[in-house]
């Protein structure tokens, strides 16, 4: 049964600022849910804290609004517990690349099948515009008294180095590009990052406006092939990673690319590793019979305790 955008409306109205890029991301998320054909009841959007992280409340799918910096572990927990669920994360750049950066890097070691849609606007908007980890050094935005004293990180390079198997960049006012990338990410098996450069008209108008994006962002060359075609070919994996990192390293902060940089459907995902140990899907395991009597078989455990 086909669903429409209207079906995906929740009865909550968003309270984002007029012109906020989050509205474009919200529309793209709904489009992607429809276009990828996932079951809304089996879809979960996990978020952190900040403007971006209010998003789950505005979509008629399951929404888990967690803590600042922690959506990744929550999402991993959901997916490991019930591998049938589609698990998306919408959170901010402060959340993901600042307070939660340890999870951001470490999640790649497990390659759990979760999708990170990071609303990246260079500022902590909800706390009135402080510098986030992606704001270039020396940049003065409205919410800080002096130009940013910290240098930025490049989340895409970090993601590729850490082991993300799908790495892309887009921007919040380009709903079509976002939708296409999100659908690809959802269909991809493994951990995916889409860094979404997000317009923040209130605290970072100068560097995140629609016109700034159209002047400074260019799509990756149409000949650029981000996909590892033979997932078991280590050499090809390395070449595709190097190709992506080279473009990213050569980018200037005022001339960046959008599109899919790297995709490797690495069959060694966490679900497979757990299944290889004989550990079935937790949600599918009966833990007791109708009377509540535990069903676990402790025979082997008791054997190890025997003297």
């Amino acid at each position: 049964m086909a669903i429409s955008l209207k079906d995906l409306d929740s009865h909550e109205l968003n309270d984002w600022c007029p012109g906020c890029g989050d509205a474009g991301i919200l529309l793209a998320v709904k489009n992607a849910i429809i276009n990828s054909g996932v079951d809304p009841h089996k879809t979960v959007i996990v978020s952190g804290i900040g403007c971006s992280s209010k998003l789950p409340h505005f979509v008629n799918v399951n929404g888990i609004h967690t803590l600042h910096g922690r959506p990744i572990p929550f999402a991993e927990g959901v997916k490991i517990a019930n591998p049938e669920l589609t698990v998306l994360i919408d959170s901010g750049d402060g959340d993901t690349y600042g307070i939660g950066v340890g999870h951001f890097i470490s999640a790649a070691r497990r390659n759990v099948d979760i999708k990170l849609f990071v609303h990246d606007n260079g500022v902590y908007a909800l706390t009135k515009g402080q510098a986030s980890p992606t704001l270039p050094e020396g940049t003065k935005v409205k919410g800080i008294a002096l130009p940013n004293i910290n240098s930025p990180i490049d989340p895409l390079i970090l993601a590729i180095a850490a082991g993300y198997t799908f790495v892309a960049r887009t921007q919040s006012y380009n709903v079509k590009e976002q939708t296409d990338l999100m659908v690809k990410a959802i269909r991809h098996k493994g951990i995916a990052l889409i860094d979404i450069m997000q317009g923040c008209p209130s605290y970072n108008e100068e560097y995140t406006s629609s016109s700034w994006f159209s002047q400074h962002l260019i799509p990756l060359d149409s000949n650029y092939d981000p996909v590892v075609h033979n997932p078991l070919d280590e050499k090809e994996v390395m070449e595709k990673k190097l190709q992506a990192i080279k473009i990213l390293l050569e980018e200037k902060s005022d001339k960046m690319h959008t599109g899919l940089f790297f995709q490797w459907e690495n069959p060694d995902n966490f679900e497979k590793r757990l299944m290889d140990r004989g550990l079935e899907s937790p949600i599918q395991q009966e833990i007791c019979n109708k009377d509540g009597k535990p069903t676990v078989d402790l025979t082997k455990v008791v054997q190890t305790l025997e003297v």
């Binding site: 996990v46 888990i64 967690t66 803590l67 910096g69 922690r70 990744i72 572990p73 929550f74 999402a75 991993e76 927990g77 959901v78 997916k79 490991i80 517990a81 019930n82 669920l85 340890g102 999870h103 890097i105 470490s106 497990r110 757990l274 550990l279 937790p282 949600i283």
Partner: peptide
């Protein structure tokens, strides 16, 4: 499923996520 992630912050988040999934 025994999982050893990067920190206790991750540990308890994974536990909470799994619990929300009904496990």
């Amino acid at each position: 499923r025994v999982i050893q992630p990067e920190s206790e912050l991750a540990v308890i988040g994974i536990v909470a996520g799994a619990s929300l999934a009904g496990v």
